[in-house]
């Protein structure tokens, strides 16, 4: 059965482009132009993945609102924000609302497809037994690349996909300095330096939420970051 992807985007041209790309990759696509339209449809039937624009025609924050409603309908439904707004504040609020990823529209379709595929893979993996080969252990850190899931001291970190790949890239080779470009490549995103910095910051915070003394991610100024054991 084809996975159903709901695209909520007020720009028809963009909507159709995304729909075409997803269909080409073998997904069933449903598109909505407004929040009301979308939420009505979601109440009737939940999609497998929702790609939501933040600004929806007359509602600048309509995407956030929709995300909140959608989360109340389903706690597990993967949600990706795809937006022209690239401010730090928007990203933080989007992720806080329970979105699985926050992507700017600079992202190429190829990258977008990769992220979506990865996301589905993670969901699928959660339902399957974990493969030993796909598990990386670094001290208290445990990374399951098959399920795209990471824990610290056996507690789930709740990383987004981008964060997951960043942590994975750092932890795979401890002591190796990964510069920003390498981290971006690992996460399959095009981000500027500041976004990487704030991603790292968020990741650290997630670790520190579990363990106050966490300091394994080290900043090598001018070079990048490395995992310290």
């Amino acid at each position: 059965m084809k996975k159903v992807i709901a695209i909520v985007e007020d720009e028809p041209a963009l909507r159709d482009n995304y729909a075409a790309a997803f269909q080409r990759h073998g997904y069933a696509v449903r598109t909505y132009g407004t929040r009301k339209e979308a939420i009505d449809a979601f109440r009737a039937r939940l999609p497998d993945l929702a790609v939501i624009d933040v600004g929806l025609r007359d509602e600048p924050e309509g995407g956030f609102e929709l995300c909140r409603e959608l989360r109340s309908l389903s706690a597990e439904l993967p949600i990706i924000f795809l937006t022209a707004r690239d401010s730090e504040l928007d990203a933080v609020s989007g992720l806080r609302l329970g979105a699985d990823d926050y992507l700017t529209k600079d992202l190429s379709l190829t990258h977008l497809m990769a992220r979506v595929t990865a996301l589905f893979r993670r969901i699928d993996a959660l339902t399957q037994p974990s493969n030993r080969d796909q598990i990386v252990t670094r001290g208290s850190l445990l990374i399951d690349t098959a399920r795209l899931h990471a824990t610290w001291q056996e507690k789930p970190l709740g990383l987004t996909l981008t964060e997951f790949w960043i942590v994975h890239a750092l932890a795979k080779n401890p002591g190796h300095v990964k510069n920003r470009q390498q981290l971006m490549d690992a996460a399959s995103v095009v981000l500027d330096d500041n976004t990487i910095t704030s991603h790292i910051k968020r990741v650290r915070r997630k670790f520190q939420a579990i363990d106050q003394a966490f300091d394994s991610i080290e900043t090598m100024y001018g070079m990048g970051y490395r995992w310290k054991e």
Binding site: A13, N17, A21, L109, T110
Partner: peptide, 8 residues
Amino acid sequence: IVSSSLDN
């Protein structure tokens, strides 16, 4: 729109 169209 332009870049996604090109991708497509």
